[in-house]
Design a protein around this nucleic acid. Structure first.
Length: 254
DNA sequence: AAAACTAACAACCGCCATGAC
DNA sequence: AGTCATGGCGGTTGTTAGTTT
């Protein structure tokens, strides 16, 4: 997947690294360290720029570096840190031992950005209510369009949620008001309030959350197992949290 | 089966901060 | 104080593998 090897006019090699080059660089640094990146390639017998050597070492060859297979925990950390720090990839890397800034950046652009964008989109539509002209609701069915849009967004979110195995029943719960199939009237307000359970994690400021004295605080990305919940499995715990969330936030209950 | 499209990721490029002179 | 070299960072590109049409 790397760029094809080639030489520039100064005889400096660019593009994908060969195994032989990796071995030379690794062996040199392990023996002498990287005292000067610009001069290092000459001493190590490499036709590369110092920058290229540094990048290869930092992102691929240095000890304890991990590749691929980001865990859910690592991804959550990246999303939280991005909310807090923005595109400060090197700062984020400090929180994820074994991950390079480049790999975190790639992960963000290929996987996590979409997840965050969906959250942001839903937050924005939440802020403007259902007044958007492009999605004008009809007189006959005032909730039809927002419900359909939300259903589409929800399907995407559920694929990312820890309840993916039970997404259909959760979807039913969100729209029908319960898990058991009893149907209540779906209104834009109800849709919005229930939607917050999934969207708020994308919009909350971590500092304000941590310093908040508000105990009424439930969301998938901020959940932790309290001692009293240790005998539940994760699904049960999340379901009970959703119940609690709705209890505090649903205007039709309060 | 093949072309078109998309996702993933390694590597490059340009800019900036810092330190040495 | 000004200049230059170097390292580091973030944005972007190029290539390949996988998927869809």
């Amino acid at each position: 997947m790397a760029k094809a090897p080639r030489f520039n006019k100064n005889g400096v090699k660019k593009g994908a690294w060969s195994e032989d080059e990796d071995n030379k660089l690794r062996a040199y640094i392990q023996r002498y360290g990287h005292w000067n990146w610009r001069l290092l390639p000459q001493f190590a017998g490499l036709s590369r720029s110092g920058k290229s050597c540094r990048l290869r070492w930092m992102n691929y060859l240095r000890p304890n570096i991990k590749h691929g297979n980001f865990t859910k925990e690592e991804e959550d950390i990246i999303v939280d840190l991005h909310n807090k720090l923005g595109n400060k990839w090197s700062e984020m890397a400090a929180y994820l031992p074994g991950r390079s800034d480049n790999e975190i950046k790639n992960r963000w652009h290929t996987h996590l950005k979409k997840r965050a964008q969906i959250g942001q989109t839903m937050l924005q539509s939440e802020q403007v209510g259902n007044k958007e002209p492009n999605h004008a609701n009809t007189k006959e069915n005032p909730i039809k369009n927002s419900e359909l849009e939300f259903q589409h967004d929800l399907e995407i979110l559920l694929n990312e949620s820890p309840l993916s195995s039970s997404s259909s029943s959760l979807s039913s719960y969100l729209f029908n008001g319960s898990d058991s199939g009893t149907t209540t009237e779906v209104t834009p307000q109800l849709v919005d309030y229930k939607r917050n359970f999934w969207t708020e994690p994308f919009s909350w400021d971590i500092d304000s959350i941590l310093s908040s004295s508000d105990d009424n605080f439930f969301s998938p990305s901020n959940l932790f197992y309290p001692a009293s919940s240790q005998d539940m499995n994760m699904d049960e715990f999340l379901w009970s949290s959703l119940d609690s969330y709705l209890e505090y936030n649903d205007p039709f209950i309060n």
